[in-house]
Each structure stands twice: as structure tokens, then as C-alpha cells.
């Protein structure tokens, strides 16, 4: 069985291995030992409550205890854009109209914005290919919502997630080629790499400062605004199930959508509930997420359990994965949202 847990100091080697597996597509998880070590240190300090809330970087790993290896990683940054500017394009509308000519043109525009500064961000999700089965992906991604539901005071008002934008089969981005390329004169990977190296200031320095009319872009580039990479479609759906949605902010490089939500409106905040654990068996197929309430040793699993009278039964193995004992308070939420009734 797999458990998602708060990262620990001695996870560095395992993280490095995962990062190497992830390759260049992951901008916030580069296989660089020093960078990862620094991030790990911040994450451990965050879980220990030693940092100011907006500096928190909560990193989680998915552990295969039986095999003694890490199967995945994910993180929540408490606030983006407070040290380095955080840029997006906001899709705006400008109407150009002339009564005299009977022309009414509704034009979409791209505004370079820092509007999302201060939002918490879901990031750095990577699941080892060998573990991409069953509910593993859901557990890894959604465990973060359980953490937020358990410790909402650590976060501000809003949560965002940047989704990888659309790419052609050959890995090129039509949006980048039609826009950023003209201003950066370097390829997409290089530009993206520079942002992760903390060289974000160059964006402001080199990107067009004035709003752009979307109509200036070639048709192909216009059409991919707000579209995710084919591989990211399931991840997007998953976050949307949890209450996140696209509100017109996109990445300045590949126009991938930013999903966002008010934290209070997340499904985890509305539907999760606490229950007292006792040793026992469950007669159900309905899989739920279960997590403990210990910040520095946060743990979450996905298991078929049901909650009755605020009590939940777990096997001894499940209890040991969660590091809990009979009588402890846990938090649970159905893994899948209830089917919406279309009454």
C-alpha cells in the first residue's frame, strides 16, 4: 500500500531519482542535488511550523513502504509571487465600436499581470510511471486538498494550479512560437528553465509591456489559449472535480490555463469530515481519502472505508501507514465527488 506523507530530510536521494525520471518537462522539479536539498530544507521547516506562513512550501512524497522507494512527489506553495514577481496573462475584453459604421468588435486581449501574487499554488506533481495505476494519481494529487482542509489557516484566500499548455505532437508550442519567441529569441525550454532558476525578472524585461490583441496572433495560436497539454487533460479534470476552474489566466509562455479556486469553496473544505479511528474491517467498495491531523508528520492514504457515527474503521496496516492509534482523530473524504444530480 502507498502512503502520501510530508517529506523528510532523508528523502533527498529518493527525490533526486524521481526528478531524474521526470525529465525536462517538470520545471519545478529539476534533477539538481543542491536545488533539491535547499527546497527540502524549506519544506521540512514549513512542516515544523518554523517559517512565516506565506513562506511555506509543503512538499509531499508518495512512499511505497514495502519496496522502500518513493513513487511520486507533489507540493503546495503557501504563496507565490512575494519574492519574485509571478506573471500570467489575463484574458481581457475590449470592445471597439462605431455606431456610425455599425461596427461592433469584441476583442480579446492579453494583459501581462501579477494578479495572482499571494495565492497558494499546487505544483511539482510527478508520479513515477511504474505507479500510474488505480487510484495512485488521485491519491497523490488530492492528498494536498486534505492537507489544506486540515490546516486551512496556513493558506490565504485563493489556490491556483498552473497547467502545462498545449503542444504539437513534435513538442513545440504554437503559442510560444507566435508570441514569446519574437521577444525572447530563445527556445521554449531554455526560457522555461530560466524561470525556474529564479531568473524571472527577465520576463518583465523582455515581454511586451502593453496589452496585446489576441486577434494579432495566428489562428493556431489563438485556438490553444487556455488548452492543456494532451497528457495533462486527466490532471485538469481531477482538479476541476475538486472545485478548481479556469478563470481566464494563462501562462505567458505556452498559454496553459491557470486553474483557481477560493480555498473555502474547495470540495475538501465542504465535504471532508473528521472521525475517530478504531481497528476493524470495512464492508464497502467506496474508496475514501483518509489523513491524520499531525502537521509535521502529515500522512494520507486512499482506502475503501466508510464513516459511521463519526467513527471510521481501519486495519492495523492502514493505521501504521497513517501513524495513528485507536482513538485518534482522522479526516476523511470520498475519493470521488458525488455524482451531480441533474434534476
Amino acid at each position: 500500500m502507498l502512503v502520501v506523507r510530508a517529506v523528510k530530510q532523508d528523502d533527498l536521494d529518493g527525490l533526486l531519482e524521481l526528478a531524474m525520471q521526470a525529465g525536462s518537462g517538470m520545471t519545478t522539479l529539476k534533477p539538481d542535488r543542491d536545488t533539491l536539498a535547499r527546497r527540502l530544507e524549506i519544506a521540512c521547516a514549513s512542516f515544523a511550523g518554523k517559517l512565516a506562513p506565506q513562506q511555506g512550501d509543503y512538499m509531499f512524497v508518495m512512499e511505497d513502504a514495502a519496496a522502500g522507494r518513493l513513487a511520486g512527489v507533489c507540493a503546495i506553495k503557501a504563496a507565490v509571487g512575494l519574492d519574485e514577481p509571478f506573471y500570467n496573462y489575463r484574458i481581457g475584453t475590449l470592445v471597439h465600436s462605431s455606431k456610425e459604421l455599425k461596427v461592433f468588435s469584441r476583442m480579446d486581449t492579453l494583459y501581462l499581470s501579477n494578479d495572482l501574487s499571494g495565492c497558494a499554488e499546487l505544483c511539482s506533481l510527478f508520479l513515477h510511471p511504474a505507479y500510474r495505476v488505480g487510484n495512485n494519481g488521485k491519491l497523490l494529487s488530492k492528498s494536498r486538498f486534505m492537507f489544506i482542509a486540515q490546516f486551512p489557516h496556513l493558506f490565504g484566500e485563493k489556490l491556483i494550479a498552473e497547467m502545462r499548455g498545449y503542444q504539437r505532437a513534435d513538442g513545440t508550442s504554437p503559442f510560444w512560437e507566435s508570441l514569446g519567441h519574437h521577444f525572447f529569441r530563445m527556445d521554449f525550454n531554455r526560457a522555461d528553465e530560466l524561470t525556474t532558476l529564479g531568473k524571472k525578472s527577465f520576463i518583465a524585461e523582455l515581454m511586451p509591456r502593453h496589452p496585446l490583441y489576441v486577434a494579432y496572433l495566428p489562428q493556431e495560436a489563438q485556438e490553444v489559449i487556455g488548452l492543456v497539454h494532451a497528457d495533462t487533460v486527466p490532471a485538469r479534470r481531477l482538479l476541476e472535480q475538486e472545485g478548481m476552474h479556469y478563470e481566464g489566466y494563462v501562462d505567458i509562455f505556452d498559454a496553459g490555463p491557470v486553474l483557481q479556486a477560493r480555498i473555502g469553496e474547495l470540495r475538501a473544505l465542504r465535504e471532508s469530515e473528521t472521525a475517530i479511528v478504531h481497528t476493524g474491517r470495512n464492508e464497502t467498495d467506496a474508496v475514501a481519502l483518509v489523513c491524520n491531523g499531525v502537521m509535521h508528520d502529515f500522512r494520507a492514504i486512499a482506502a475503501p472505508v466508510c464513516v459511521e457515527d463519526a467513527r471510521v474503521a481501519l486495519s492495523a496496516e492502514q493505521q501504521s501507514l497513517l501513524g495513528c492509534r485507536d482513538g485518534d482523530t482522522l479526516r476523511t473524504m470520498p475519493l470521488h465527488p458525488k455524482k451531480k444530480s441533474h434534476a
Binding site: L94, H96, S97, S98, L101, V103, S105, T109, S178, L179, H182, F183, P208, H210, P211, L212, Y213, Y216, L217
Partner: peptide, 12 residues
């Protein structure tokens, strides 16, 4: 009323 209010970037 109709023409662009913001500069048109020539490279685009």
C-alpha cells in the same frame, strides 16, 4: 473608436 488603443508590436 475602432483602431487599437495599445501599441501594435511589429514582430507579431
Amino acid at each position: 473608436e475602432l483602431m487599437p488603443h495599445y501599441p501594435v508590436y511589429v514582430p507579431l
